[in-house]
Amino acid sequence: MDVIYEWFRLLYQETGINLPFLYDEYDRNRMVDGFLTTVWLSLVCLFFSVIIGVIGAWLQGSSFKWTRRFVNGYIQLFRNTPPLVQLYFFYFAIGTLLPRVENDWGGQSPILGSFAWAAISLSFFAGAFNVEIFRSGIEAVPKSTVEAAEALGFSKLQIYRDITLPLAFRVVLPALNNNLVNLVKTTTLAYAIAVPEMLYEANQIWSDNVNVTEMMIFLLLAYFVLVGVLVGAMNRWERAMKIPGYG
């Protein structure tokens, strides 16, 4: 492994192409941490945004007027404001209003840190889109299918869970794919509230080494690969869930 690292140091000395996150141990650790933070933040947000989408779409079909209004209000609020503004709002406005806890260095710190706020904010942001995406899928399920399930004595929750949602899921996967890809890319915004993800660490490295060009190219490729893996997985899933003759 060290041979490869040293080769990149030589590359820098010979050609001026400076990739310190490969040959410098400190920068390498920073970059690896940044990569893992991005992956972890993406996974957390993907998971919660899909959950929010599923639950939200179900609540939208509720027979209570106020439940529907509440969900619609949530969608409007989060879809019509920029995600960066939401992040700042959660971190600097809501974050400072919450109770504080004693931390291990003897001070008082807010109950939620920057990572938690980024996860919450981005999940809600993508969740708002997911609710609408799932709604489109639910509306695509033929009414006769739902009526047939009702005739068989299924409860409302059972119909949603066992009939509507599985069918809707197959319809919405392409749109959901799009939104989740966007979500992974939006995690770079967490940089603004100092979540140490890839863009943040890259910025730290380029301000120490003044190698902006190299870091930019690296970042572009890194996200290309990261999103490529997600898209590949989603496509496989889409194929695996395919019902012959449906959709």
Binding site: Y26, F92, G95, T96, R100, N103, W105, G107, Q108, S109, P110, G113, S114, A192, I193, A194, P196, Y200, N203, Q204
Partner: peptide, 27 residues
Amino acid sequence: SQNYGAEIVAFKGTAEAYSALKAGNCA
């Protein structure tokens, strides 16, 4: 961070950094 092992939480401008310090996000 290298010499003293601090975990740097870096913000874009001084206003954000002062605000985060006041909120207790940093020591």
